[in-house]
Amino acid sequence: MESLKLDKDKLKDFIAALDSKKVYAPQKVGETIKFAPVNGDLEVSLDFANTTVPPKEIVFPQTETMFLFEQGGTDINLTKGGAEKVLLGVRPCDARAMSVVDNLFSWDIDDPYYLDKRKKITLVGLACLEPPLNCFCPSVGGGPASTEGLDILMTDLGDAYLFQPLTPKGEQLCQLSSELLQPAGAEDNARAEELHREAEKKITREVDIKGLAEGLPSLWKSEIWKEVAEPCLGCGICTYLCPTCHCFDIQDEMEGLDGRRCRMWDSCLFKEYTLHASGHNPRPSRRERQRNRINHKFSYFVDKFGVTACVGCGRCINLCPVNIDIVDILSKVKEAL
């Protein structure tokens, strides 16, 4: 499908035209920027760079009911699937992250909870024309205008958005609001391409990840991990707010005689993540936990699925209270190899 154009002041009408689906866009909720449902009176702004909480929480909520049960009974009640959703203004890195995580949730046994939500979601991306400081997406195979995982890529042309539908889902969405969208000219496409190239040049942080997947296991006993983990607080910021981290814990909760089984985010940086019932902990200190974090992203996941489980969004760098910097760690690892 040809690319299209939407006047910026018609963004609101565009959202209204999608009323058969639930539209989510980056918003300031309390003091946090995250994807939240758009309702009439909220001003939609796509100017935020990366949201603090990544959009993974829409397809993989922090707490998710799996089924309901009653104490003493033998029946379980599976939860019903959700509504069709559109995520507006997703950054290309976060969309790529979803396609990375898809590998895991459809590997071996399909995960119905994740896949149901994933199927019903349309990702309308927005190219990052002003990438924040700690972004390094090109180093891990992405880019500020990467299309992987997206259904539509939007580019801010100043007074209008250029829409590039990428999948049948994206085309369908454009048809829903066809009267608002005008065909774009060749000069618009060329302008967008130029903006994308310029944006990529603005990214300053980089790291060469070639050879990491094979090399990391050889550093198992390296002093690097001790150095990395020394200031680490062992909190969950870097993993909870990572768009590709996907670990979860499963718990049963009771209220009176009613119960539910639910799953919630978990983090490999927590002590009890690997704690055995016997009291033994195979990852006894933060050194092993940080080592696992890096190894999982750059080695184990690559071995299993052939993709790196890091999309270079820079959240872990920005939000770490003690400046544990993944780019810095990786360059140290490269030096040690």
Partner: peptide, 27 residues
Amino acid sequence: EKFSSCIRCYSCRNVCPLCYCEDCILD
């Protein structure tokens, strides 16, 4: 509103010099 945005990463607990129970009720 403030409490709703909490993601329970427990960084506030971990960074606190005076939160040092070996066996925290949260775990």
